[in-house]
Simulated assay, not measured.
Amino acid sequence: MKEQKIFFGINLKFLRERRKISQEELAKKMNVTRAKLGALETGHTKAPQPLDYIEISNFFKISIDSLLRVDLSKLGELKLRELEAGNDIYLKGGNIRILAISVDSTNTEQTQYVPLKAKAGYSDGGYSDPEYIAELPKFKLPHIPAEGTFRIFPISGDSMLPIPDGADVTGQFVEDWTTLKPATPAIVILKGQQDMVFKLLTFQNSENVLLESLNSAYAPYTVEAEEILEVWKFYAYTSKEMPEAATELNMIIREIRELKGRLGK
């Protein structure tokens, strides 16, 4: 059985530095010595007292489970604020989670394909089910970078022309999608829907996300941030169809979108 890594020490140091609190200051607030706090941060105290966990959890408003089992430094600021607000992965089943992936016999992560017949099951809970993910078709693509998690999704419709109907879009998993640039093309997995959408994503604020199509015939729309389950940033696409030649109107629309993206930085 694989040993479970414990993040308590590095999380304690990360949270303290995030608050810009010195070891001496935090030690006074915790009513412990600076030496003990230093030992907790470096992991030299192998068996901290239960009261230590409780006091640190109460002070930083992060559950003990998250302090122990989640590398908080890998989460975005928005997700950290959600944890502090009580939207905890272990307490309330929030969106912060460990991504279910599949690896080969050499422990190399594989790129998986979500076929059309599996799309409904994926958005209906399969995305977080390791057994479901393990059953998806697996590929080792030569052009995929070694770093990051990638997945392939088939798209339908003409809302993202010139990327044609039926194309397979390869996306890279984005843990903190609030850091994406405006109008980033991405596969977006939404709650309560039996499908997934391929759109230009713009994070507007902590509550709303704008989704737009490349095809101007489709109006942009807004979804609530809490409705988003996953975001996969566009990496590449494959298709049996040749893309149509760009029209003057499409070129103008693209230039406008690129200008909006630059102004939104």
Rank of each mutant, 00 (worst) to 15 (best):
T106S: 13
I62G: 06
L80W: 05
I155D: 05
V32T: 11
L80N: 04
N208R: 03
I64M: 13
L229W: 00
E230T: 03
V197F: 05
F59W: 13
M251V: 02
K20A: 14
Y132M: 01
I189H: 01
T247H: 04
N215I: 07
P137G: 11
L83A: 01
Y218W: 10
V197C: 03
R262T: 12
I155L: 02
D176C: 12
I253N: 13
A245Y: 10
Q194G: 15
F198C: 01
L37E: 07
L75R: 02
D129V: 00
R254M: 12
E212P: 10
P220W: 09
D168M: 00
P162K: 03
V223Q: 06
S213E: 07
P137S: 10
G9Y: 13
R97E: 02
Q49G: 15
P162E: 04
E109D: 02
A183V: 13
Q193A: 02
Q112W: 09
G38Q: 08
I6K: 14
G264F: 07
G192T: 02
L51V: 11
T149G: 00
V223K: 00
R97G: 06
G94I: 00
I89D: 00
E212W: 03
K92V: 04
V70K: 00
E224D: 08
H44N: 15
I133W: 00
F150H: 08
S66V: 11
E3R: 14
A100F: 04
V197E: 01
E230P: 00
F60A: 07
S123K: 09
L78N: 09
L40Q: 03
I64R: 13
L51N: 10
I256G: 14
K119H: 02
R34W: 05
I187H: 01
P154T: 08
A35S: 12
V209E: 06
I228E: 01
V174H: 09
K46Q: 06
N31V: 10
